[in-house]
Each structure stands twice: as structure tokens, then as C-alpha cells.
Amino acid sequence: MRNLKSIVGLTLVAAFVVLAAFAPALAPYDPLRSSVNMVDSPSFSHWFGTDELGRDILSRVIYGARTSLIIGFGAATCAMLIGVPIGMMAGYLRGGFDLVAVPLIDLFIALPGLVLALIITVMVGPSLMNLVLVLGFVMWPTIARLVRGQTLAVRETLYIEAARAVGGTPGWIIRRHVWPNIMRVVAAQFAISVSAAIFTSASLSFLGLGIPPPTPDWGGLVRVGFDFLSLNPLMSLGPGAAVTFTVMGFYLAGSSVE
């Protein structure tokens, strides 16, 4: 079961990474080039049909993988950069730092991430960079909580006690002993965070606060395609499926690690 999960997950992840990396070679058309064939149904020359400006939807979906993966990896990295140090310090140092960090983490986790992201995005303006930062900011508490719990567990083990006994400084112990022990879990959580970031960013773009056009972006593609659902269902369901399978892939890859 666990094996199947990781195989499916890693396959999906690999497929979308390849799609993003080799988009120019794989996409049949220029994703930005419009034509007179507007809102065409799927055909041999346009597998997913064309959009309201006559652009090839399949090509736009393939290029959209780039935007999604950049946001996903970028936001997850951001969240890790904030969450991991805070979680480790709270879990290892305990004391005053922990007393401040825990309620803050709990508060942020309870708050509605998408709503928060919407508010911040409209204030700072939607751009690729801003989206990465906003999503990273919304997601860090989940990571901090996980890392804190893991650090607490490691902290109680005998070898940490031994390391302390020989006079190791907290910084050294965290680097040499705590980090290697929680790395696996953090890596798994990274994959899950990528999946969450892609999920949330697609929702943001669907609501109209994503990457500004004309850059192909899955959530935005779905938003436009939705209006033409009865004319060409693949115009929205195509990019929608891409979001879904990417989210699923990263989630499966992350959750199959225990």
C-alpha cells in the first residue's frame, strides 16, 4: 500500500517536472500566440482545443506547469526557512521562546489560510514573487508545529543527553544530532507543503488573484475556461486535472514517507 502510494506519487511528480523543464520542446504551439480559431473543440491539431483568443490550451497547460512548480517549490522553501528554525528552537530551547511561539503557531494554524492569502495578495499586488512570499508566510506554522514536535521527541533521547553531557552547545547539538534525525520527516513535509502551495495558489488564481495574464497559470486557465464549459469542457477541466494530479502527486510522495 505504502509502496503503491510512493510509486504513483513519484511518477506524477516526475511527469510534471519533466513537463515543466521541457515545456518548449513538448508544447505543440507557442502558448501566447493567438489565432482566429477561437474556442475550438478538441481536435488532432489541438488536443485540448483552443481558448477565447485562439491559443492552444494544451500548450498553455504544459507551460502552466512551470508557474505552478515555481510557486509550489518557492512557497514551500519559504515556509521551511521560517518554520524549521522556529520549530527547532521552540522544541529544543523550550522556555520563554516556546511559550511565545506555541500560541502564535496555534493561532496561525487556526486562521483560514486562503482568506488570509487573499487579503495579503490584494494588498501587496499579485506577482509571482509576492505569491511565493504570501503562501510561504501562510504555511510556515504547520511546518513549525511539526518540527517542534519532532525536536521535542528527539530531545528526550539518550544520545542528546550524552551530547549535552560532553558539553555540546545547543547550536552544535541541533546541527549534528537533531537535524539529521528529523530530516526525513521534514523532507516528507516539504513535498506535502509543495502540494498545499499549488492547491492554494490555484484557488487564488481561480478567484482572480493569481499571476496576471498572459502568463499561463492553471488556476487562471480554469477561471477563464469555466465560462466556456458547455462549448469546450477541456478548456477548464484540462488545466483543472493538471492541478489535481500535481497536488495528488506531491501529496502521495510526501505522505508515503513515515
Partner: peptide, 18 residues
């Protein structure tokens, strides 16, 4: 369970409408 937690609401909603 997997479908529930990984399919975004908009995708599910549009699929149902379709």
C-alpha cells in the same frame, strides 16, 4: 479520501457542473 483532500474545490465543482 485521497480524492477528497487533493482535488481542489473549483475542480470538483466544475466537474460536477459538467
Amino acid at each position: 479520501n485521497l480524492i477528497g483532500i487533493t482535488v481542489p474545490n473549483f475542480m470538483l465543482g466544475i466537474s460536477l457542473i459538467f
